[in-house]
Amino acid sequence: MSILLDKKTKVVVQGITGSEGSFHTKQMIEYGTQVVAGVTPGKGGTKFDGIPVYNTVSDAVRAQKATASAIFVPPPFAADAILEAANAGIKLIVCITEGIPAKDMVKVYDAIKKMDVKLVGPNCPGVISPGKAKIGIMPGFIHRKGKVGVVSRSGTLTYEAVKQLSDLKIGQSTCVGIGGDPVIGSNFTDIIKMFNDDPGTEGIVMIGEIGGTAEEEAAAFIKKNVTKPVVGFIAGRTAPPGRRMGHAGAIISGGKGTAAEKMSAMKRAGINVVESPADIGVTMQKALNDVKAKLKVD
């Protein structure tokens, strides 16, 4: 099984005719994603690679029964695109766009939190359920179908972790890049909850970064609720305070959000915290083997 999306998910791409949107739409289709519609205001009625393009998300939902959206529109218009999707009845919104002002996202988060919709991102690589479908920009071929859920604030570092798993023949149920911004739609806890409830997920990899307290909150949730093995890594142990390390969210401010604090909270929650990013795969392998060994003994 998987979370958030599978083969049946019908996807609309917002910004389908832009350079990013058009390139990744093709990649998504090639991977097996059901892209049923595109939206570009003013280009309704035309087609992109055989896919019907609509002026509004509502039109796309009505005509093609899309339930998920991929957003590739530029930062000044992305908050509006998220709200449009949410109000058109889309249930899963994946916003890839990087560089949305925090003020816009504060308003969007507040508006959609009462609605029946899940937002992943912004500033994220997206969601992939290996062997089924992907919404996002991650390279499909490094993934492998399987039973480990991956959740991460980063892009390429997630690929690194996925590659380590796949090389060890450990497949993934779903991999979710939640994004590197201070305000994001789904946090670690939201995704870990889903992995915990998913019978097809047997282990969880969480990859955090310096800044904020989302990893600590997730650790508290895991301590209370999760019995599946969890492997964790925090990037940025060597980052100096007060400097934004690329991601708008990756900043140690007022002595809060350090890697040391996060790692110790995660260790206390029983998470297998790795010191080196090179050890994510092997540590998950060991954790899964330990579970198997224990089952045999019982």
Binding site: S154, T156, G236, T238, A239, G246, A259, E275, A278
Partner: peptide, 21 residues
Amino acid sequence: VNGAGLAMATMDIIKLAGGEP
């Protein structure tokens, strides 16, 4: 490095290996 998360992780592993980024 390409990507902020991987860049931080690369700095971290340099330090673990005995270097300083």
